[in-house]
Amino acid sequence: MSDQIEPIAPREISVHDVEFEQVVQNGPKGFFDQLQGFWVTFITMFKKVNTVQYPEEKEPTAERFHGRHQLNRHEDGLEKCIGCELCAWACPADAILVEGADNTEDNRMSPGERYGKVYQINYLRCVFCGLCIEACPTRALTMTNEYELADDSRSKLIFEKADLLAPLRQGMLMPPHPMYPDMEDVNYYRGDVKGSHPSQDVQK
C-alpha cells in the first residue's frame, strides 16, 4: 500500500520568492523618549476620572442595547404575540418556552386565531443575541434597554408572561376583549388600529 502514496514533492516556491516589506526595527528608544511614559501617567492623575459611580449614577445604554425582553401590545391593548413559537425555535440557547392556545369569542387575547398562553424566558440561559426578535413575525417580542437582571435564585430568573408583557398605555384595554369593530387581524398587523373602541370595553 505504502508505495502507492506519492511522496510530497519539495515545494517549488521558496520563502525568498515572496515579496515582503522592509521591517524597520529601530531598537530601544532613547532615554528621554522613554521618560515620556512617566509624564503620561503623571498628567493622567489630574485628568477627569472616567469611572461611573454605578449604583448612584446610571448612564443610558446604547440606543440598541440588548436588554430584557418585552411582549408588546396592539394599540387597543390586545397582545401581539400569536403563540407561533418561532422565537423559541430561533433561540440558540433554548431559553424560550412558548405554548400557544386558541382565541375564542369570550376569551380573546390577541387578534387572529392563536395567542401565546404560556410565555417564559429563562434569563439564566439567554445570551441576548436578539435572534428571537428577528424571528418574531408580529413584532410582539422586542428588547428593552433594561440590564439590571441579577437576582438571588434560579426560579426568579425565569420570567413569566406577566413579567414580560408591556404595560397598558393610554387608550389600551386589558384583554381579553373583542377585536376592534369591522377590523380583521390583518388590519391589526398593518397598523390600522390606532386605539380602542368603546364597544371593546367588556368590563363595563
Partner: peptide, 10 residues
C-alpha cells in the same frame, strides 16, 4: 488610589 488616578479610574 494613585495608581487608579494614573489610569483614569477613581
Amino acid at each position: 488610589r494613585i495608581v487608579a488616578r494614573m489610569q483614569q479610574r477613581s
